[in-house]
Design a binder for these strands. Structure first.
Length: 766
DNA sequence: ATTCGCAAAGTTTTT
DNA sequence: CTTTGCGAAT
């Protein structure tokens, strides 16, 4: 076909390279997806059997998109294309016994896994001093991502938490095995271990998957790295694509080293660089490039584009988060009203989900349609989880977490005491809870009444069990009526319950759609697998003509004509928890790089001078990243430059603003807002503030106190830590620092005076 | 057993 | 500030 003619030289090189390892370093907007899909098509055309091709992605969304594109290129040919987790889930299904599981194992999501851990910790009688379940879970997850099995786990010496983890990890793993269940990390861990320990299986899978493609290789963790390696040994036809500058999942164990040292890991690697960008304007690209250059640990890369210069990147400063949200909403509304743009042209990104609230209000106010992409949501709702738990229990009766969730939902008189007895019985004989429930008549501690209630529950599950091979929708139908779930919600007076019923209906719809596609056997298992590995990000609908709101992480791989990135402030971007670690700071910078490079034509970065944080209004500090951006490409817009009152007595000012906004006098038809606001507040690019000057802004935020004023023994105030005494001073000029003892906090802290919000206590009264 | 109320805790990103 | 969890009371 002719698609080869439409590719650039570099793209074509990657697409037509057939055998041997291939590393495609693909900058943002360089047509990476196109290269991957064309490559799959090209392989098939050159005679490779589709079933020998394995394409692994990071998200379902990416997989779905690729599948659609491959289908266009080579209709009817089905290669295995999906996420790492799904690939592992399927492979584990076929070889479950090798790791002590049965093929009908359950995949626990994070909250299920947390419950299993809770169970395990209790059963092992581990006391949680100085730590929490969450902490333990994290450490276990880290260990699993690094392929450290329970037996091999060694806590760092003198780590009290580590010692607890060393006990909890094996107990947790045992609990999972008893329940015939795995968590997300296990999917990878089990497969990686399985490949290590079973050479013949490894060899056969290696042979089966002759051509492997891995997308977003920079996001792979150690377990994924090992899996890929194991499958590409005898047939190293491994093509990985990625961009080290877009690695944003370090917190989840992703290891940048995997892509940076790909050339050392494999022999005779062909490297193709895709550096031409087809997405963004020159200006946007230059801004992105200038930012990412500040990272030390990276492969230098030249990004360029043939696209036009475009408009300057706007750096907007608003007085409050509310003005930020309203300003953006007004501009969007204006552009839609005047038909310059459609809602779907816009995206608004933020670092944390919590930041979306003000935007939602503002957009709703303006009547702008929007869709918000959140991580989970649907499958996390109680009623949905309850219903799915029934299915899980039916599919895998050993699933203790599922049983605990459903045995008294809706209530059927099986209370805490009964459950304690059941649990004791189960632990004594080392059997799953459902087994214990089945023997309820034999448990002496149980009252007659309790035993009967349990027996009725068991009978109901058994009865439902007769329907497990029917289409999922039908099974769900039986389940909803026999369990009384439907009846309880229907009879309820509560509106919330009717909404729950609606959600269950939605689940039925999902089941019906699933049934249409999967007519074959084992459908229940697969349905549950899909549900477990699904996230709401996956069915983000491009066709919908709505403004998109999402986190920066969710934005990866997408593009929009107009992008707003909000809250570019110290502590949010970069995030507080990353600021003390240079490696994490680089990841934050990459995250911002990803966000910026989503924009095709227009980009606005913004911050608010004041932002509500944990219920408190706080003066913000502009993100240090802003100072790394090239002044020449930017346009600075300040919505309240001559309005200094936000500094000191801003409490009232803010309330005033709220008052005016709500007063009917200033009614908000779209165009009134848009016009009245923009000309008055826009400033010519020339003059005013430079990006560096914006940094000075932070000094203005708290009226500057010259570092020389601080003396040893002086009483000082810190907005966060309260009052304290200077017990040491060091450095000179910009480097002058003070060590302060805060008696109320029982701690000492060292500050760089130039940057700190420290002030002499006496100034308070003025 | 369920319900209500209060307290506490925790607020990054997701397969 | 919000959500979640736990404990008490009915």
């Amino acid at each position: 076909m002719d698609y080869l003619d439409t590719l650039s030289e570099a793209q074509r090189e990657a697409v037509t390279h057939r055998d041997g390892p291939l590393l495609v370093l693909a900058g943002p907007g360089s047509g990476k997806t196109r290269v991957v899909t064309c490559r799959i098509a090209e392989l098939i055309k050159s005679g490779v059997s589709p079933r020998q091709v394995l394409a692994l992605t990071f998200t379902n969304k990416a997989a779905d998109e690729m599948r659609a594109r491959v289908e266009q290129l080579v209709p009817g040919e089905s290669v295995w294309l999906g996420t790492f987790h799904r690939f592992c889930a399927r492979t584990l299904r076929q070889n479950a016994s090798l790791v002590g599981l049965a093929e009908n194992y359950t995949i626990y999501d994070t909250s299920d896994a947390r419950k299993a851990l809770d169970q395990a910790v209790q059963a092992a009688e581990i006391t949680l001093t100085h730590t929490t379940l969450d902490q333990i879970a994290h450490q276990i997850s880290d260990a699993k991502n690094a392929l450290v099995t329970p037996e091999r786990f060694e806590p760092r010496r003198s780590s009290p938490v580590g010692a607890i983890v060393a006990k909890a990890y094996p107990a947790y793993q045992k609990q999972l095995l008893t329940s015939n269940a795995v968590d997300f990390d296990d999917l990878l861990l089990h497969i990686a271990v399985m490949l290590q320990e079973n050479p013949e299986l490894r060899a056969s899978l290696d042979e089966r998957y002759r051509y492997i493609l891995v997308d977003e290789y920079q996001d792979t963790n150690f377990a994924q790295y090992c899996i890929v390696r194991a499958l590409a040994q005898d047939y190293p036809n491994l093509a990985v694509t990625g961009d080290p500058d877009q690695s944003i999942y370090g917190w989840r164990g992703a290891n940048l080293k995997n892509i940076l040292s790909f050339e050392h890991d494999y022999d005779q690697v062909r490297v193709v660089r895709l550096e031409e960008n087809y997405r963004s304007t020159k200006r946007i690209l230059r801004v992105a490039g200038a930012l990412i250059e500040n990272n030390k640990r990276r492969k230098a890369k030249r990004l360029f584009t043939d696209n036009e210069d475009g408009s300057r990147v706007v750096l907007a400063t608003y007085a409050t988060q509310r003005e930020e949200a309203e300003g953006i909403a007004a501009r969007i509304a204006d552009d839609i009203q005047s038909e310059r743009r459609r809602p779907r042209d816009f995206a608004i990104f933020y670092r944390t989900n919590a930041l979306s609230r003000a935007l939602e209000f503002a957009l709703r106010d303006q009547g702008v349609p929007y869709q918000m992409i959140r991580g989970l949501e649907f499958f996390q709702r109680k009623e949905v989880k309850d219903t799915l738990a029934y299915l899980q229990l039916l599919n895998n009766p050993r699933d203790d977490v599922a049983l605990l969730r459903v045995i008294n939902t809706p209530t059927r008189g099986i209370g805490k005491t009964t459950l304690t007895h059941l649990t004791n019985h189960a632990r004594r004989y080392g059997v799953p809870l459902f087994e214990a429930a089945r023997e309820s008549g034999l448990i002496e501690a149980l009252s007659k009444r309790a035993a009967v209630a349990v027996a009725k529950f068991v009978a109901m599950i058994d009865h439902l069990g007769a329907h497990v091979h029917e289409p999922v929708e039908e099974l769900l139908g039986h389940l909803l009526s026999e369990s009384n779930i439907r009846e309880v919600y229907e009879k309820s007076e509560d509106d919330a319950d009717h909404e729950r019923l609606a959600n269950i209906e939605e689940l039925l719809t999902a089941a019906r759609q699933f049934d249409e596609v999967h007519a074959g056997d084992n459908t229940l298992e697969e349905f549950l697998e899909q549900a477990a590995l699904y996230s709401d990000t996956d069915d983000w609908e491009t066709e919908q003509d709505k403004v998109t709101l999402m986190t920066m992480h969710a934005a990866k791989g997408l593009e929009f004509p107009v992008v707003f990135l909000i809250a570019v402030e110290d502590g949010l971007l970069p995030h507080q928890r990353s600021m003390d670690d240079p490696a994490q700071m680089e990841e934050e910078r990459r995250l911002m790089f990803v966000a910026i490079t989503r924009a095709q034509q227009q980009l606005q970065l913004s911050r608010a001078r004041k932002r509500e944080f944990r219920g408190q209004r706080r003066t913000t500090i502009p993100s240090g990243f802003l100072m790394e951006l090239p002044r020449d490409e930017m346009e600075l817009v300040d919505s309240a430059p001559d309005f200094p009152s936000w500094q000191e007595d801003s409490n009232e000012w803010d309330d005033d603003s709220a008052f005016f906004e709500d007063s009917p006098a200033e009614e908000s038809s779209v165009d009134v807002r848009g016009e009245s606001r923009s000309p008055a507040t826009r400033h010519a690019t020339a003059g005013l503030m430079t990006a560096a000057a914006l940094g000075q802004d932070q000094a203005t935020a708290t009226p500057p106190v010259s570092p020389e004023k601080f003396k040893h023994g002086m009483m000082v105030e810190h907005p966060e830590y309260g009052s304290g005494t200077i017990i040491a001073l060091g450095g000179t000029a910009d480097l002058r620092s003070a060590t302060v003892d805060f008696p109320a906090m029982g701690m000492e802290k060292k500050f760089m005076l130039k940057y700190s919000n420290l002030r002499p206590a006496s100034e308070e009264s003025a």
